[in-house]
Design a protein around this nucleic acid. Structure first.
Length: 493
RNA sequence: GGUGUCGUGGCCGAGUGGCUAGGCUCAGCUCUGCAAAAGCUGCUACAGCGGUUCGAAUCCGCUCGACACCUCCA
C-alpha cells in the first residue's frame, strides 16, 4: 500500500482555472516537465523560486510513493532577442560581449546554475536535457507540422501558421486569449515581412553568416525557434501526453500556449493534463529588473554582499521563506520578511533538535495521528506549504511543552512525531538542519561543556560577575547559552 | 487599450459562505541571581460602496488601488 493511495492530491490547473483531483495517466507514475533556464547569465532569483516550488512538488510526490520522472531542460540554443531580430540570440550576444564561444557561455552559466541549486539543496531532476542535444528531434517535429499544414517556409525560415491552426483548434485556451484580440493588440514591428501574420511564431530561423550557433536542416543552416525545444524534449522523454507541466507565470503566454499548439499540430493531442504556474517573486514590492537595478543575485543574497539586505541569509532560511507563501501567490522579498522567517526557522529547528531529548510517558496528551494527517492534508491541497508549516509550528509548541513537563507523549507517539517531522521538514520542504546542537561527540561540545560547568560553579558561589562574563563572551563568539530546567544547553549562531 | 491575478491585523502570509491558520513584532506574566530560551495572556483584521443570504473576508455588481502578461523573461 503506497501513501498516494489514500492521499488524493488536488492541483490548481491553469488550463481550467480550478483545483482538480490529480489522477496520473499511469497509476503510480508521474511525468512532470518544467521549463528550465536559458543559460546566458547568472540564474535569476525568480528562477530559483519557481524551481524551488517544483522541487517541493517533486519531493512530495516522491514521498507519496509515486515513481516520478521529472524533466527540466537547459535552454542552451538561445532565444531570439525578439521575433523581428535579424538573427542574433541572447547567447550569441553574450558571447560577443565577453569575447568567448557561445558554448563557453552555456558551460559557464550551466555550472553556475547547478552550483546555486546545490546550495539550496535541490534534488536533481531525473533528466536534464539540452536544446542543442535535440536538434534532430526538433527538425523532425517541424517537418511533421509542415506536413500537417500548420507550418510554412519563407527564405529558409519556418513559421507556425497560427491563423490556420486557429480555424480547427483553439489557440489561446491556456492564457484565455482570443486570436482576434491578439490581432488588435499586436504592435507593428519592423522586419516581420517573412511572416504571414504577426501572431505566427518561428519554428526554424535561417542563420545569418556571422551567427555561430547553427545546424543544417532541410530549410537552411539555422537554429530552432524558442518554443520548440520543450515540445520536442517533453514528447521524447514523457510521451505525447503527460501529467504535469510547470513553469513561471510569465511563460504562460506565449511560450506554453505555443507548446500546446505545436503538440496539437504535430500529434493531434493536447500534451498536458495539469498545467501549474508559479507566481512571480518581487523585490521590495516591485518586479526584479536589471535595467532599473532592482535586482539581487542568489549568491549576493547568500553572501550578504548587496544593497538590499542587512545581512547574509542561510540557504535554508530562504527556502523556508519561500515555503511560507503559496507558490501561486506573488511573493515580496524584503529584509523584514527574511528576518521574520529566519527567527521562525531557527525556532522550528530548535524544536526538531529537542525531539531526541524528550522523555516519554505512558500516554500522550495530544492526538499525534490527527496532527500527522493534517500535515498530509495541507500538502494534498495544492501543495499548501504555508499550512504545512503552521502545523509544524503546532508540533514545535507541543515539543517545547513536553520538555517543560506541561504535556506528555508516549514512546510510540514520539516515534511517529519524530518520523513525521523529519519527513516534512527535511524530505518534503528540503530544509537543512543548520543548527549545531550538542550531540556530545564533537570537540566544540566538550569545550563548551567545560565552560558551562565553570559557569555553574561560579553561579553556585554567587560569583555572577564571572558567570555573566562567561555567558556574554561566549555570546560574542556566537555561542548562546540557554538555561533550562534540566541544565544548560547551547546553540551556535 | 486587452487579458489575467489580487487587495487580510504593526509587518509577512494562509483561508472561499457560519466553528475565523501560522510566523515575526509589541505589551504583561511565569521561570531565572539577572538575562536569554521556552511557556501563558493580550492586541482580532479582511480596500470602499451596494446587493444576494438566517449568516460573507469568502458569492454578485460597481468604484478605487496594486501586480503580471500582451515584446526576451521563471
Amino acid at each position: 500500500m503506497q501513501l498516494f493511495e489514500h492521499n488524493p492530491i488536488k492541483i490548481y490547473n491553469s488550463l481550467s482555472g480550478k483545483k482538480e483531483t490529480f489522477t496520473p495517466i499511469e497509476t503510480g507514475y508521474v511525468g512532470m516537465y518544467v521549463c528550465g533556464p536559458t543559460v546566458y547569465s547568472n540564474v535569476h532569483l525568480g528562477n530559483v523560486r519557481t524551481f524551488m516550488s517544483f522541487d517541493m512538488v517533486f519531493r512530495y510526490l516522491k514521498h507519496l510513493g509515486y515513481k516520478v520522472r521529472y524533466v527540466r531542460n537547459i535552454t542552451d540554443a538561445g532565444h531570439l532577442e525578439n521575433d523581428a531580430d535579424a538573427g542574433e540570440d541572447k547567447i550569441t550576444k553574450k558571447a560577443r560581449l565577453e569575447q568567448i564561444e557561445p558554448m563557453e557561455v552555456v558551460q559557464r552559466y550551466t555550472v553556475d546554475f547547478h552550483n546555486i541549486l546545490n546550495t539550496f539543496n535541490f534534488l536533481p531532476p531525473s533528466i536534464e536535457p539540452t536544446a542543442t542535444g535535440h536538434i534532430i528531434e526538433q527538425i523532425e517535429l517541424i517537418s511533421t507540422i509542415i506536413e500537417n499544414g500548420f507550418g510554412y517556409e519563407v527564405n529558409g525560415s519556418v513559421y507556425f501558421d497560427v491563423h490556420k491552426f486557429n480555424e480547427t483548434h483553439e489557440y489561446g485556451k491556456l492564457s484565455k486569449r482570443k486570436l482576434e484580440d491578439l490581432i488588435h493588440n499586436t504592435r507593428e514591428l519592423d522586419g516581420q515581412s517573412d511572416k504571414r501574420n504577426p501572431q505566427d511564431f518561428a519554428l526554424w530561423k535561417r542563420a545569418e553568416p556571422q551567427h555561430i550557433m547553427r545546424w543544417p536542416s532541410p530549410w537552411s543552416d539555422g537554429f530552432p525557434g524558442w518554443h520548440l525545444e520543450c515540445t520536442a524534449m517533453s514528447t521524447k522523454y514523457l510521451g505525447e501526453q503527460f501529467d504535469i507541466h510547470g513553469g513561471g507565470m510569465d511563460l504562460k503566454f506565449p511560450h506554453h500556449e505555443c507548446e500546446i499548439a505545436q503538440n496539437e499540430a504535430a500529434k493531434g493531442k493536447s500534451p498536458v493534463n495539469y498545467w501549474m504556474h508559479a507566481n512571480m517573486l518581487e523585490l521590495n514590492g516591485q518586479r526584479m529588473s536589471k535595467s532599473t537595478g532592482n535586482t539581487v543575485n542568489p549568491d549576493e543574497l547568500l553572501s550578504g554582499n548587496n544593497d538590499f539586505f542587512s545581512k547574509a541569509y542561510a540557504p535554508s532560511v530562504i527556502r523556508f521563506f519561500i515555503a511560507q507563501s503559496s507558490y501561486r501567490s506573488v511573493l515580496d522579498l524584503t529584509n523584514d520578511g527574511l528576518l521574520a522567517s529566519e527567527k521562525g526557522f531557527y525556532r522550528l529547528m530548535d524544536a526538531v533538535n529537542l525531539l531526541e531529548k524528550l522523555e516519554v510517558s505512558k500516554a500522550s496528551t495530544i492526538n499525534i495521528n490527527a496532527w500527522r494527517q493534517s500535515c498530509y492534508d495541507a500538502m494534498n491541497d495544492d501543495f499548501n506549504s504555508p499550512i504545512l508549516i503552521a502545523n509544524l509550528f503546532e508540533a514545535a509548541k507541543y515539543i517545547n511543552q513536553i520538555k517543560e513537563g506541561k504535556e506528555t507523549i508516549s514512546a510510540e507517539d514520539l516515534a511517529t512525531l519524530t518520523n513525521t517531522m523529519n519527513i516534512f521538514v527535511f524530505d518534503v520542504l528540503g530544509l537543512e538542519n543548520v543548527v549545531k546542537n550538542d550531540s556530545g561527540t564533537d570537540k566544540l561540545t566538550g569545550a563548551v561543556n567545560v565552560l558551562i560547568k565553570l559557569r555553574q560553579e561560579a553561579r553556585a558561589n554567587k560569583d555572577f560577575a564571572l558567570s555573566d562574563k562567561i555567558r556574554d563572551e561566549l555570546a560574542e563568539a556566537g555561542i548562546l547559552l540557554k538555561d533550562g530546567k534540566d541544565g544548560t544547553t547551547y546553540s551556535v549562531n
